[in-house]
Computed example of a mutant assay.
Amino acid sequence: MQTLSSKDTCTDALILKQLTSKVWNNDPVLFQESRMTLSSDRERIVLIRYIEHYSPGSGQWVEYAYSVPVCEFTQWIMANGELKIEDSEGRPGV
């Protein structure tokens, strides 16, 4: 199993989801973010989930990073994804 840190990923990321919530005035802020990026060597797709609890007196965060080789991800998409075919004349494929 390969471990990744933030320095192992590209700075450009596709943000998939962000959520910030605070229920009561004195409650800490909960921030969650999911993003997708490439490893710095561009050989792996990396999905990152970041969670932070923040209050003026303290803050805690954790980041989870899952990765898969680009070639394996591409093969999985082609084997399991929904195929749509169009041609130059605008006709739907068979």
Rank of each mutant, 00 (worst) to 15 (best):
E89Q: 14
E43C: 11
Y64H: 10
L19W: 02
T3R: 14
Q60L: 09
S5L: 07
D8Y: 08
I15L: 01
W61V: 00
E33R: 15
N26R: 01
T11I: 02
A79M: 06
W61D: 08
T3Q: 15
I15P: 00
F31M: 15
N26V: 04
E33T: 14
S58W: 15
G90A: 12
N25S: 10
Q60F: 12
Q2H: 07
K22L: 07
T74I: 10
T9L: 10
M78A: 11
E63H: 01
V68Y: 02
T11N: 06
I15D: 05
T74A: 12
T9K: 06
G93H: 13
R91W: 13
L38W: 01
D8E: 05
R91M: 14
F73V: 09
F31H: 12
A65D: 03
L14K: 13
R35Q: 04
L38I: 04
H53R: 12
K84M: 10
M36R: 05
E52Q: 15
C10D: 08
P56T: 00
E33P: 04
R42N: 11
N26G: 03
S55W: 02
R42V: 06
T9M: 13
S21C: 05
G90D: 13
E52G: 00
T37C: 01
M36F: 00
L4V: 01
I85R: 15
E33Y: 08
V70K: 13
Y64Q: 08
A13R: 15
V23N: 14
T20E: 14
E52L: 01
T74Y: 07
R49S: 03
T20C: 10
E89G: 06
Q18Y: 04
V68L: 06
L47W: 05
M1F: 11
I48N: 00
I15R: 05
S39K: 03
T11L: 04
V70P: 04
L83C: 07
S34H: 05
G59D: 05
L38V: 09
T20G: 09
G93L: 11
E86N: 15
A13V: 03
E86A: 15
V68W: 00
L38M: 07
M78D: 08
G81L: 05
Y54G: 07
G57D: 06
Q32R: 15
K84V: 15
G90S: 08
G57I: 01
V23L: 14
V46C: 13
V70G: 01
M1K: 11
D27K: 08
E86R: 15
P69N: 07
V29S: 08
E33N: 08
W61C: 04
F31D: 12
L16R: 00
A13I: 02
K84P: 05
L4W: 09
Q18P: 03
E82R: 10
G59M: 14
S5G: 13
K84T: 10
P28R: 09
R44S: 09
E43I: 08
Y66L: 13
K17M: 10
E52W: 00
N25G: 08
G59P: 04
L83M: 11
R91P: 06
S55P: 01
I15G: 01
S55M: 02
W76Q: 06
G57M: 00
L14N: 07
T3I: 13
V62K: 12
I15N: 03
P92W: 11
E43M: 13
L4H: 01
V29P: 06
S67F: 03
V68D: 00
G57Y: 02
A79V: 00
R35I: 00
L30C: 03
